[in-house]
């Protein structure tokens, strides 16, 4: 910061070169987002201008060879999988963060946290592979066919749980211990302290985690591609196979041409919009939480 050009009286030639080259790098990095959005827009433009957004909902179905591009079942499947996994992962993640802080013996709590960090580091393709080899047959033995919405929800739950758990964990750690001590001194039981003090005080942090988890669940590709069965349909129950936006792109990009390809880019645009919405909500919440702490 001290180096900003007006602070230094002597502008040697090399210094200017350094500043210019750094500026070039910064401009490249800063314009990357514009480039990404621009290219996705450019590629989806034929579909956007010729077909329009409405056809994504009014066409008879998803038959790219017959130029019929209805995305409703795919968007529905995406939403169902993401919402289902958040419904499972949010309580599990919050409970396990509470476990580390209030229930576990210190050493076990530390191990458990490390385990969750390891879980966060497992690549999605490995989750997908394990889901395909272990989870899908398990679901099939309960209720065929196996590759299903349920399998997708379960795998996604495992994948977004670390996000929710780790963020909740750190926001609980920020609850002043004085609150916990004085609540305990009032004769509140462990759960009463959690319910009345810890959860309300750290709720913004928890919400941040939930929204980031939701964003991650929506954007997840590989695991869901491998365990969900990829049938384009609105599922009537948990054991029906589904196809998500991400899986649709991954499956059909390889051979898509013309309008089909353009529609796939458009669905990528829709997906990016959805994910960025949730990420910005999470960022706004994080901002709010930081302000609350600073106050």
């Amino acid at each position: 910061m001290i180096l900003s050009s007006n602070n230094i009286s002597s502008h040697s030639k090399t210094d200017l070169h350094v500043l210019w080259s750094l500026q070039v790098f910064a401009v490249v990095a800063g314009s990357l987002l514009v480039l990404v959005i621009g290219f996705i827009l450019r590629e989806s433009w034929p579909a956007l201008s010729r077909l329009g957004l409405t056809r994504l909902f009014t066409d008879p179905g998803w038959f790219p060879t017959e130029h019929s591009y209805q995305l409703t079942p795919i968007i529905g499947g995406t939403m169902l999988a993401a919402c289902g996994s958040i419904l499972l992962a949010a309580p599990l993640g919050i409970l396990s963060a509470l476990f580390c802080h209030f229930y576990a013996p210190p050493l076990l709590g530390k191990w458990y946290r490390h385990m969750i960090e390891l879980l966060a580091g497992i690549p999605s393709v490995v989750f997908g592979f394990w889901g395909l080899v272990v989870l899908v047959p398990l679901v099939a033995s309960w209720h065929p066919p196996g590759p299903s919405l349920l399998a997708g929800i379960l795998i996604l739950t495992l994948m977004i749980l670390p996000t929710i758990m780790l963020i909740t964990h750190s926001s609980i750690a920020q609850v002043p211990s004085a609150y916990i001590h004085s609540a305990t001194a009032l004769g509140l039981s462990r759960w009463a302290v959690i319910w009345h003090i810890v959860l309300p005080v750290s709720r913004i942090g928890m919400l941040t985690g939930v929204f980031l988890g939701l964003a991650r669940a929506l954007g997840e590709t590989m695991a869901i591609l491998m365990v969900c069965g990829n049938v384009v349909q609105l599922p009537s129950h948990l054991f029906d196979p589904i196809r998500t936006l991400t899986a649709n792109i991954a499956l059909e990009m390889a051979y898509a041409l013309g309008h089909h390809r353009s529609v796939l880019f458009m669905s990528g645009l829709v997906l990016m919009g959805l994910v960025l919405c949730f990420v910005s909500v999470a960022e706004a919440l994080r901002h709010k939480a930081n302000h609350a702490i600073a106050k």
Binding site: A178, H181, S182, A185, G187, V201
Partner: peptide, 14 residues
């Protein structure tokens, strides 16, 4: 703890 109340050095209102 119901029988024994406690006040801390810094006021700790929730």
């Amino acid at each position: 703890r119901r029988q024994v109340g406690m006040i801390f050095q810094k006021p700790t209102v929730f």
